[in-house]
C-alpha cells in the first residue's frame, strides 16, 4: 500500500504545471512545489533506500534537518527533495 497524499485546493490557486522525470516515469509538478511534494502527490513516497538494511525511507522532518529525503537530481547526488524546487524536465533518481 502507498500513501494517499493529495494537493489541497482550499485557499490557494496554483501556477503553471510541468513534468519532471522520476526514475524514468513522468509526473506532474506545479510551480513552487518541491521535488518531494510532486513525488508525494504522485504516490511516490520512497525517496531513498537505506545504506545497510536497504529499507525504504521517505520525508521525515520535512524542514531540511534529517537528510532522509536525499535524491539524485540531474546526476547530482544528495539533493534534499523536501527543500529543492522541481524544475521543468528535471531528472530525479530515488
Amino acid at each position: 500500500m502507498a500513501g494517499n497524499a493529495h494537493r489541497i485546493e482550499k485557499g490557494v490557486s496554483r501556477g503553471n504545471h510541468f513534468e519532471i522525470i522520476v526514475d524514468g516515469r513522468r509526473i506532474t509538478a506545479y510551480e513552487g512545489e518541491t521535488i518531494g511534494t510532486a513525488m508525494m502527490a504522485a504516490g511516490l513516497y520512497i525517496l531513498r533506500t537505506s545504506t545497510e538494511k536497504k529499507e525504504p525511507r521517505g520525508i521525515f522532518c520535512g524542514i531540511g534537518v534529517c537528510q532522509e529525503c536525499r535524491v539524485t537530481v540531474n546526476g547530482i547526488p544528495n539533493i534534499q527533495a523536501c527543500k529543492t524546487l522541481a524544475t521543468p524536465e528535471c531528472c530525479v533518481e530515488s
Binding site: 494537493r7 489541497i8 513552487g32 512545489e33 508525494m40 513516497y45 522532518c61 520535512g62
Partner: peptide, 20 residues
Amino acid sequence: PGVLTAGGAQNLVKNQRILP
C-alpha cells in the same frame, strides 16, 4: 515512509499545500 514529524506535516500544509 508515511511516518513524519508534526512540524514536517505542517510545513507541507503551510508551504506546499499538500496533505501527506
